[in-house]
Amino acid sequence: MKIDCTINGSPTVLDVSPMRRLIDLLREEMKLTGTKEGCGEGECGACTVLIDGEAVNSCLVIASQIQGRQVVTIEGLTPRSGLTPLQESFVRKGGLQCGICTPGMIVAARALLDKNLEPDALEIRTAIAGNLCRCTGYHRIVDSILEAAELERSRLSLVDTAPPDL
């Protein structure tokens, strides 16, 4: 079955079985291994990616469900060089340890911040409540996202106030 979709901004045509899981498409066909599998049942969130801007568990999405849709993985959220403020915050604030939940966690955080750039701690915890982390106790993940939101807000306000020729 032919699937037309966009993966990390690139229009992509995939010829795959309709029952192929999105996580396998990404990891095996596209070699986008930043998306991780922790349980295969939608219980851990390590496989979180964005479809049309919404966080989903790629282990529960089948190929046919991405027809015509935009898929973004951790690779697609990473700039060509360096890191985004969100990624930098995770490094700086101790939002990661072993790193296996981190791509999914950052994708979930991105989905939140795209809708709500002023989340409080409870809103953050709610947004990542499907992403299990066994290392950090979550405290520093919440801090990382809070800091990232603040950085992104200040960056936005800089853009707003910048003269037009910048």
Partner: peptide, 10 residues
């Protein structure tokens, strides 16, 4: 962290 960058960019 030494492993920070590679863990946040996948």
């Amino acid at each position: 962290r030494k492993d920070g960058q590679s863990k946040v960019n996948g």
